[in-house]
Structure formats: structure tokens, C-alpha cells
């Protein structure tokens, strides 16, 4: 799987090249265009129960698409639903990433996707819900975000504070605690931050430059109210 980001910025696409017989997983609905040699299959990753748990627990799509170059090599164009950047990671078989539920766009066949239950405090206050995706394995992983993606590199024991709704993905060697943004409860609420995640390295944290929830609240005021 060779991949390349087209039109980097707010409205990117990923061009994925597949050799004959190769197949990749993609978020259902992500395929924009592809060569005639490529077959699109719906596949319930992790079996029916796995797919069901993913659907109900993480809010991810029930089916993943499988794009299979069954009749010779070809390419496919993939794009996410929301405007925002795409990042391509190479997983080495040892690294694991936690990905918030809308972050997954595509992955090579060697990528393993699981639903993982977070601790109660992280689930309640972390902003990603109780269940997140744990992605491991070996191969290319394509993530998407809302807004631009920014990579934060943490050295061992280095700390960084991230607003909870801006998280995209983070490596499992990091750890984080949920904290109030300011010392007082009232200030916490009025500052608009509420809760933040204090990350501790080593590892990588990918954040998105826009907050989907706040964007939704902002756009709601412009939607005409029908009788």
C-alpha cells in the first residue's frame, strides 16, 4: 500500500496504490473513486459482534470497506466526511495508537482495529466517549481530523495539556489524567475549557485544530428554525 495525500489542507484526498491482490480497510463511505480493477466489499471487522460493539460503543461505522485489487494493480481515492487534514502513519508492529472514534480513515491489511473501553473518568470527561479505537499492527494507517492536524512529540516524562475535544490519536506509551482547566469550578466552566487532558510522555499526541462540538454549536445559530 503506497499512499499519497492530494490537495493537503482543508479538503484533502488520499491516493492509495494497491498491488495485485493487495487489500486495505477504509471507513465505510470513504471511497471517492477507484480503478476498475478494485473491488469494494463491506466487511464486519472483528466479526459480527466486533462490528456491533464498534457501532454501538464507539459510534464508528458498523462496516468497514475493504478495497481489494483483485483484478490487477490499481489505485483508489479516499476522502473523509469532514473538512480537515489527513495524516499518514507507518505502524511498526510495536507501537499502538488510541484513536478517537471519528479519526480512522484507512489502514493496510496488517492493521488491527479493536474497540477499547476507557476508564470511567476518561470516558465521562475525556470527550471521546467511553470507547475508543485501539489500532496496532504493521503497515500504513491513515487518520483524518477536523481542521489541521498537529503532532505533539513528548520526551519521557514531558507533560503537555490538551483540551479534551481536540484529541485525534495518541500513542499507548503516553498516559493522561483528566483535570479541570482552571483551579476553580466556576472559572473552569466560564473559561470554556472545562476539562483538559494532561498528557505525559514519551510518545506522540495528534491533535486537531478545530473542535467539532463547538463548531456544531456555532453553526446551529445560523440554521433557520422551521415551524
Amino acid at each position: 500500500m503506497k499512499s499519497e495525500i492530494l490537495y493537503p489542507g482543508a479538503f484533502p484526498m488520499v491516493r492509495v496504490e494497491l498491488t495485485a491482490g493487495e487489500h486495505i480497510k477504509a471507513e465505510s463511505g470513504a471511497m471517492v473513486a477507484c480503478s476498475p480493477t478494485i473491488d469494494i466489499e463491506s466487511k464486519m471487522e472483528g466479526g459480527f459482534l466486533g462490528a456491533l460493539s464498534r457501532k454501538f460503543l464507539t459510534g464508528e461505522k458498523f462496516f468497514f470497506q475493504t478495497l481489494r485489487a483483485s483484478r490487477g494493480p490499481g489505485e483508489a481515492l479516499l476522502a473523509p466526511t469532514v473538512p480537515g487534514e489527513i495524516v499518514i502513519l507507518e505502524l511498526d508492529g510495536v507501537s499502538e495508537y488510541m484513536v478517537q472514534k471519528d479519526g480512522f480513515l484507512a489502514g493496510a491489511d496488517g492493521i488491527v482495529i479493536e474497540s477499547k473501553m476507557q476508564s470511567l473518568s476518561r470516558g465521562l470527561l475525556g470527550g471521546e466517549g467511553f470507547f475508543i479505537l485501539k489500532i496496532s499492527g504493521k503497515g500504513t494507517l491513515v487518520l483524518n481530523s477536523f481542521g489541521a492536524i498537529h503532532k505533539i512529540e513528548l520526551k519521557p516524562d514531558q507533560e503537555y495539556i490538551v483540551d479534551n475535544s481536540h484529541l485525534v490519536a495518541w500513542s499507548s506509551t503516553t498516559s493522561y489524567n483528566i483535570e479541570k482547566a482552571t483551579s476553580g469550578w466556576i472559572a473552569s466552566v466560564t473559561s470554556g475549557e472545562g476539562f483538559v487532558c494532561r498528557f505525559r510522555g514519551p510518545g506522540l499526541v495528534y491533535i486537531q485544530s478545530r473542535n467539532p462540538g463547538s463548531f456544531g454549536a456555532w453553526i446551529r445559530q445560523f440554521i433557520p428554525v422551521s415551524e
Partner: peptide, 10 residues
């Protein structure tokens, strides 16, 4: 393995 001469992802 993490260290100063290695990438932040380890």
C-alpha cells in the same frame, strides 16, 4: 526505546 537521539514516537 526512547531517548534523545530517537524520534519521539520511539
Amino acid at each position: 526505546c526512547f531517548g534523545n537521539d530517537y524520534p519521539a514516537s520511539g
